[in-house]
Each structure stands twice: as C-alpha cells, then as structure tokens.
Amino acid sequence: MAEIRHRKNSLGITGWAWAGKYKLERYLYLLHRLTGLGLMLFAMMHLTATTVFRIQGQEIWTATMDLLHNLWFKVGEFLVVTAFVFHALNGLRLVLQELGFALGKPVPPIYPYQDAIRKKRPLTIAMIVLIILLVIVFFYDFNVGGW
C-alpha cells in the first residue's frame, strides 16, 4: 500500500508578514520587525558610506556627499529616525513585558475573556502617543534644518 503523506500547511514567512484580522499588538510585532530590518539596512549603508568611500580620498567622499544631499535621502533619513524612535520605545515595552513586568497577574478566565496584553493596552497606547509626539518633534527639526 502506497504511503499517504500529510500535506504541509505552514504559513511560512506570510505567517509573520501578514497580520490580517489580528489586532494592535500583532501589527506592532510586524512593525517592530520591519523597522528592525530597515535600521539594519541603514546601518550597513551608513557604515559602507563612512568607511569604503571615505578611505578613498577627499574627492570621492565629497562626490558621495553631493550625491546624498537631495530630498529623497532627507526623506529616507526622516524615515530612519521614525523607525528608530518606534523600534526603541516599542523595544523598551517588549523588554519590560517579556520580563513579566506591566502584565498584571493571571486571573481565572471569565467570559468575555481579556488577556494580559489587552488589559495593559493603555500602556501601549501611551507608548504610541509618545512615539507620535517624538516623530512630530523630529519632523519639525527636519523642516527647520531644511529638506
């Protein structure tokens, strides 16, 4: 008798990249990963620009800086700042809660159920408000400095 194989059904990368009908914290998880990847990409580009191009002499360094001084790279820098602010503050929340702080105590599940992370959602909302305020401050700073 031929062996019947079960069909694999793992969502794979779409399982974490698609938050679908899940709520706020699931989207924060996705955004945390995306901003983390974005910051890593920026760090690599930044290190490349400030090492490889710099050691090749003043001329190449000046040409590189001239290339980077345009609106698109300024917008990119602003996105890097935004990603950094989000990643840092959300990371702080995650460190605290992953160590069991700001989660409350287990309670008997009485319908309608409310899990710890949603009971502490005011903390998450406060963090989001702080992120938005800081992003506005940095936007103002970029505006004053000129795009």
Partner: peptide, 12 residues
C-alpha cells in the same frame, strides 16, 4: 510577543 495566541485563544 506578538500575543496573537492570547487574542485567538477560545478559552481565555
């Protein structure tokens, strides 16, 4: 800590 497990758990 995406917490999707807790959100979806039908038994709280």
């Amino acid at each position: 800590f995406a917490a999707a497990c807790s959100e979806a758990c039908p038994k709280g």
